[in-house]
């Protein structure tokens, strides 16, 4: 997967499996599985060869993953459409409330013009939609140098700097 991670473009080993049924065999390797599937098939996955990560979407209850956070190096949040903003809140809760320190990845309809906000909400890696220019997307992080309010990036509200 060619992704932006911590402001750099790199190739990593993760593969996203977005639809999977219980009777399907799971391929080897580092996989991002739907959270619900992972929840229901933990026994079966115990012998998986490779690392496992999970992907949640806006419909999932983010508190359901709270007690499992230590099991993952990567959690992905899916934007089925870039206008669906629920995962901005999910990201903040994962970082601010549940203390997730690993790789928080935006997947799905991930486009340049939303990256600045996503990063502020706690995402540090981004799987840019395939038809878009990933180099171009990198520029988004420089859109603003001032932030009025606090978020998961630890920025102080600007008034505290005044």
């Amino acid at each position: 997967m060619r992704v932006i991670k911590d402001n750099q473009i790199l190739e990593d080993s993760w593969t996203r499996v977005d639809t999977v049924t219980a009777d399907q065999p799971i391929p080897d390797g580092d996989l991002i599985l739907p959270f619900k599937y992972w929840q229901q098939n933990q026994d079966k996955l115990a012998n998986h060869r490779g690392k496992l990560a999970v992907c949640l979407n806006g419909e999932d209850k983010i508190e359901d993953i709270a007690t499992h956070i230590g099991k993952f190096n990567l959690i992905a949040l899916d934007f089925p459409a870039f206008k669906d903003g629920r995962c901005y809140s999910h990201a903040r809760l994962l970082r601010d409330r549940y203390g997730f320190k690993g790789d928080l990845r935006a997947v799905g309809d991930v486009l340049r013009d939303q990256l600045f906000y996503m990063k502020r909400c706690g995402f540090n890696s981004f799987f840019i939609r395939k038809d878009k220019d990933i180099e171009d997307a990198l520029k988004a992080f420089n859109d603003f140098t001032v932030k009025y309010q606090t978020a998961a990036d630890g920025a102080l509200p600007v008034y505290r700097l005044r």
Binding site: F82, Y88, F116, Y117, Q149, P157
Partner: peptide, 11 residues
């Protein structure tokens, strides 16, 4: 100021 470009509440 709080609501301007609020990263969580723009979508």
């Amino acid at each position: 100021q709080w609501s301007t470009f609020h990263p969580e509440f723009s979508y």
